[in-house]
Nucleic acid binder design. Structure first.
Lengths: 116, 116
DNA sequence: CGACTCGTACGATAGGCATCGTAGTACGGT
DNA sequence: ACCGTACTACGATGCCTATCGTACGAGTCG
């Protein structure tokens, strides 16, 4: 069966229309999650959770990815043992035009300014 | 003395260079504070705290204004018994070009979409 | 001075959340 | 069947925070 159904377990995502600005801002107000999103935006396509080398335990990493998914910032899907993550650029750009780019730009500027 | 010194009590504000994106996002991730900022952006100039009619007590209102000030989003100054509030547009636009407008636009869009 | 308004300070409370550790599940390969 | 890797679930912990109520300080006006 070569069809979809990438995996048996699937994950709850908010529909595009259910994404709330406050939730997105809250999700991005955590340094760890902002870092994840920046890395995700830099890489074209999807990245597995294990690709990220964060200074927290894996439990905590799982938590952050879930917050990002439930707020509508990223989309997650299992692929084998890996869990792939991708930015929901299309949905976000449609809902909040220019916001994601402004945020990423702002984050990059601040990182450059503070020597990150 | 016609100089500054609008009042005796003055309030601590972060310098422009101390404003952190994460703090700004956290400040704006609260519905009450986002509402305040939108109203402040709509009105040109400054507004007193008492101008706002929020569904919370005055204690809580004070709290929200302090969070906004300490994150660098607004500037506050006493003028007589009133406390005036103004968006720090210049500082924010310089640090994070386009971000404030994108945020305000996004908030307006969402309010329109959800019937706010 | 007194009364009134505007806003603050402080304590309490209840809920949220970032973090950890441990134990467990799902999948792929040998 | 077994093992290793990737991620999760759950409970605990300590901190942060949104909210309230009450009591107070600062300023204005009579």
């Amino acid at each position: 069966m070569p069809s979809p159904a990438v995996s048996s377990r699937d994950l709850p995502h908010p529909a595009s229309g259910e994404i709330r600005l406050e939730d997105v801002l809250h999700a991005l107000s955590d340094p760890m999650r902002l870092r994840i999103v920046r890395e995700l935006a830099g890489a074209q396509g999807e990245l597995s959770c294990s690709h990220f080398d964060l200074p927290v335990t894996k439990s905590t990493t799982t938590h952050h990815f879930r917050v990002l998914r439930e707020s509508g910032v990223i989309r997650q899907a299992y692929r084998g043992t890996a869990k792939m993550n991708g930015l929901r650029r299309g949905d976000l750009d449609e809902l909040f035009p220019g916001l994601l780019d402004a945020l990423l730009h702002a984050a990059a500027r601040q990182a450059a300014r503070l020597g990150g």
